[in-house]
Design a protein around this nucleic acid. Structure first.
Length: 921
RNA sequence: GCGGGUGUGGCGUAAUUGGUAGCCGCGUUAGACUUAGGAUCUAAUGCCUCACGGCGUGGGGGUUCGAGUCCCUUCACCCGUACCA
């Protein structure tokens, strides 16, 4: 019987579905194991061969863990809210719910064809009201909580107001927005409206006017991680900075815990480092500078208080609130002009031009609290309004940016560190002995820094301060296709919906464009108000809202009373293995850790960190192919001859190129313009050029998994994607090599069939060589799976099958365990053979074979025999030979005798199992 | 600039973690069976050399009896990040 992957795979996929083979229960005697994939955004383009890479790796691990006796939770779902569906809706008028549904169906059928062992009964999607009920619920919880820095956790707002009533906010150590200090009497005298305003400054979900990333083309604000190099990640449109009132999540409150938690999880160093940089902790101090002839005290943040004697000017961000307070009448116009110019530049322009130094003097002077000297205050866009206080003390001698500014505007530069030459560039290193620094002279930089902070605190002009780069996440989008906020407005004040009223479902609207006056699409919904007539919030939540806690929902997907029940959460605990791409390093993976920590504070979840181990799969790139058209003709010249002509490079569909050779007929039929194409061939063939590029439609290099599955089968696809190289590495797809894996599966299949093509296995006792082939494979695969080295496992299977083929081994005692070992990788063929071997149960209920160590070691060991370190020949010796035996054998060897003839042995170095070296003279 | 990572045959990769570099696969070459081969099987395949032999893990240096692996130095590429005070 031939290996017919189409029949086999269709049969077993149906079998798994109908028998609920991979449906798991929240109760089991077996230990739990939770393997999660980053759920996909179901785009209109469908899956390409790159997408399943991580899914295959996690599926192998899940199936393996199951064979090892674990109760494995391995779910799949869809991150279904988001911009592309809505953009598509704007263009075509199709409702995003419809296109999303279609895309999900397509994804699901593509995934099923690859034979994943998902528990499909737990499938979820973020746009389902039953799901987003809990996204809205979590938002409300954040709204009703504040972050207590003393207890390092979120607490209900009621505990805060109780404290206000008793002691005001003087003793409250909270993460909060700007708010004045007040005693209890003041608090108790406030009106309800005034109180509400104060409380808003403490909520973990709050509304505030801040500088936001506004993308005019998308008509929405974006979070920092949704902007890259000044362009929107989705669509690549320019982004500008604009002050707007928005919902925010106080992610910054958790900065320290997000940082600290990294030490306790098993992620790659590079990913942890990315998160550390994103959080951007820096230690320093805040310091007030008096302004000459003014009441204003200017607060700055610095990490180098030790250099305060070298401050020769101050710089404000153009948008800083201090600018209006300090600018003198004489300079008002010039300052206004500078601000206007700076405001006009898009983020992109500002960033592409980081080297030109611009600035404007304000006419005002600050007083250096340590030297008493007056120093000019400038504004410049190299100081950012969003970091620190938006104002800096400039120390040109020891900061390269301040240095460039000082040089440009001819400001004084005072060196503060002995031996530092600042005539051509600043000395930024944080080491050396201080000078020109009054009381700090003679100290090294680190001592001086501490001394300076102490002095600042003693003088009462500032205090020690840790600053984070991590900002609060802007949480509203002026968009339709997202979770509605469960809030409405009464007399301009926020009112939250009662939890029993959730979910607040997305209403139908007739058009997905923003309204004429720039209001979000939800303003078009006629009845977007409470029964009492109060208007609901018209923004919706951003993409990361729905993806921040989905891993919890899988634990208990149908629960209508809680995000996840206590029992279910305590059983599944956390994600043991999370596989996904690095692109979520500072977005999703920060937000979900934040979200999870918040839920942990509430007691809803039992683990502080959601993802114990995380593996990043690399990307599978496309291998683009090119033809070369001689300019102005319809003639195409083969790659090797193209330099003889003036040619134009044209992308050609990779599916009509094999081993770089173009299928000429297919090319002519590909597009009408090529129908009459003429070719200049080399050796009778047309050779294409190639390049590694991102897999995308526009490069014609997309390989669809469906066509691979149809031609070679899912098992071949799975094995081949793993065989391509280490999963963590990015690598180009090359359909050429897949034949080798396909051949392997055919060879494997043939082991079970005799010359007539009938299934036949023998019950004869295996011989040592066969047992060795088997047990070496089990051992290798077992240890490879644990370290995600799947490519070497596949190689090992090939070696094993080659050996068994040449041994003509068809023994049950060898083949049966081998099928189980292969099952995680190639589940369909394994199931089929398992059935042929006479088993009625699915192979996924089998037990992973035990390694018999007797057969994993060789009885002889090949030693390199070296003379003076130079390997001369090799010698086979018993594997367990000791030093004396080895030396005796070597000395008795004829080749050895010949080589050392006339010389005397000075020293013998033997490492049993490894090497023999004779030092001779 | 800063942070992380990678350099091994024509290509994807492997190397018991300091012990015969190149496993497995692709590709290529030759042969067998074939009307045919884009099917299957067999063999060869790092480079130079008819051969003996020599050279080989980006370059240079070092430690070691022995280095792809450790140390120093240098070059190249990839990823992330960017005026964060």
């Amino acid at each position: 019987m031939e290996y017919n992957h189409r029949e086999i795979e269709a049969y077993w996929q149906k079998y798994w579905d109908e028998n609920g083979t991979f449906t798991v229960s929240n109760k089991s005697e077996r230990p739990k194991y939770y393997v999660l994939d980053m759920f996909p955004y179901p785009s209109g383009a469908g899956l390409h061969v790159g997408h399943p890479l991580g899914y295959i790796a996690s599926d192998i691990y899940s199936r393996y863990k199951r064979l090892k006796g674990f109760n494995v939770l391995h779910p799949m779902g869809y991150d279904a809210f988001g911009l592309p569906a809505e953009q598509y809706a704007i263009q075509t008028g199709q409702h995003p719910a419809v296109t999303t549904e279609n895309n999900i169906s397509r994804y699901r059928s593509q995934l099923k064809k690859i034979g994943f062992s998902y528990d499909w009964s737990r499938e979820l999607r973020t746009c389902d009201p039953k799901y987003y009920k809990w996204t809205q619920w979590a938002f409300l919880q954040m709204y009703h909580h504040w972050y207590n820095n003393d207890t390092q956790k979120a607490e209900p707002i009621a505990t805060l107001t109780a404290e206000f009533e008793r002691n005001g906010n003087q003793k409250v150590n909270a993460a909060h927005s700007e708010v004045p200090v007040f005693p209890a009497e003041v608090w108790n005298g406030l009106s309800d409206g005034e109180k509400a305003e104060v409380i808003d400054a403490y909520r973990l979900a709050y509304r505030a006017k801040t500088m936001v990333n506004w993308c005019p083309k998308l008509g929405t604000v974006l979070a920092n991680d949704e902007v890259k190099e000044g362009l929107s990640v989705r669509g690549g449109y320019p982004v500008v900075q604009k002050p707007m009132v928005q919902w925010l999540l106080r992610v910054s409150a958790y900065a320290e815990r997000l940082l600290e938690g990294l030490d306790r999880i098993d992620w790659t160093d590079s990913l942890k480092e990315m998160q550390r940089n994103w959080i951007g902790r820096s230690e320093g101090c805040e310091m007030f500078f008096d302004i000459a002839d003014s009441e204003v005290k200017m607060k700055i943040f610095t990490t180098r208080p030790d250099t305060v004697y070298g401050v020769t000017f101050m710089v404000l961000a153009p948008e800083s609130e201090y600018v209006d307070q300090v600018t003198t009448a004489e300079y008002r116009d010039a300052v206004q002009q500078y601000r206007a110019d700076a405001g006009k530049r898009t983020e992109r322009e500002r960033m592409s031009d980081t080297h030109s130094v611009t600035g404007q003097f304000t006419g005002a002077y600050a007083i250096n609290p340590f030297t008493g000297s007056q120093i000019p205050i400038w504004i410049s866009d190299y100081v950012l309004v969003g970091y620190g206080t938006g104002a800096i003390m400039a120390v040109p001698a020891h900061d390269s940016r301040d240095y460039a500014f000082a040089k440009k505007f001819d400001l004084p530069i005072i060196p503060l560190i002995e031996g530092a030459d600042v005539s051509t560039e600043s000395y930024d290193a944080k080491e050396g002995i201080m000078m020109n620094s009054g009381m700090f002279n003679g100290m090294n930089v680190l001592e001086a820094k501490q001394a300076a902070i102490n002095e600042v605190e003693k003088l009462g002009i500032g205090n020690r301060k840790i600053n984070y780069r991590l900002r609060d996440a802007i949480f509203s989008r002026q968009r339709y296709w997202g979770e509605p906020f469960p809030v409405y407005y009464k007399d301009g004040r926020v009112q939250t919906l009662d939890i029993t009223k959730l979910p607040l479902e997305l209403p139908e609207i007739d058009s997905f464009l923003p309204t004429e006056d720039g209001e979000p699409p939800l303003s078009r919904a006629a009845n977007w108000k409470t029964p009492e007539g109060y208007p609901y919030e018209t923004s919706t939540m951003p993409g990361f809202a729905g993806s921040s806690a989905y891993y919890l929902r899988y634990m208990d997907p149908d629960n209508n009373n809680a995000l996840v029940s206590k029992e279910s959460n305590e059983y599944w605990q956390d994600v043991d293995l999370y596989i996904g791409g690095t692109e979520h390093a500072v977005g999703h993976l920060i937000y979900s850790r934040f979200w999870n920590k918040f839920l942990f504070d509430l007691g809803v979840v039992c683990k502080d960190e959601p993802f114990k181990k995380l593996v990043n799969q690399g990307m599978i790139q496309g291998q683009s192919k090119f033809v070369y058209r001689i300019k102005g003709t319809n003639q195409y010249v083969s790659y090797g001859l193209k330099d003889d002509f003036d040619t134009q490079e044209i992308h050609v569909d990779v599916n009509i190129v094999k081993n770089d050779i173009l299928d000429l007929e297919a090319f002519k039929q590909w597009r009408p313009e090529f129908a009459d194409a003429q070719f200049v061939l080399e050796d009778g063939k047309y050779i294409c050029g190639s390049a590694i590029e991102k897999m995308s439609k526009s490069m014609f290099n997309v390989v669809n998994p469906d066509t691979i599955v149809e031609r070679y089968g899912a098992d071949t696809l799975r094995l081949y994607e793993m065989f391509l190289g280490p999963i963590q590495q990015s690598k180009p797809w090359d359909t050429g090599g897949i034949e080798g894996v396909y051949r392997f599966l055919n060879k494997f299949w043939r082991l079970f069939f005799n010359a007539n093509g009938d299934f036949e296995v023998s019950d004869a006792q295996p011989v040592e060589a066969e047992l060795k082939a088997l047990h070496k494979t089990i051992k290798k695969v077992e240890s490879d799976i644990e370290i995600f080295s799947y490519n070497t496992s596949v190689s090992q299977f090939m070696v094993c099958v080659n050996e068994l083929t040449s041994l003509k081994c068809n023994k049950r005692a060898i083949l049966e365990p081998l099928v189980i070992t292969l099952a995680p990788f190639a589940p369909h063929i394994a199931e089929e053979l398992w059935k042929l071997l006479g088993h009625n149960e699915s192979i996924s209920d089998a037990e992973f074979p035990k390694v018999d160590e007797r057969y994993t070691v060789d009885s002889t060991k090949t030693y390199p025999v070296a003379i003076n370190g130079k390997t001369r020949f090799t010698l086979d010796l018993p594997a367990n030979a000791d030093k004396d035996e080895i030396e005796k054998e070597v000395r008795a060897n004829d080749r050895f005798k010949q080589l050392i003839e006339g010389k005397s042995v000075i020293k013998v170095i033997i490492v049993p199992g490894k090497m023999v070296n004779f030092v001779v003279k």
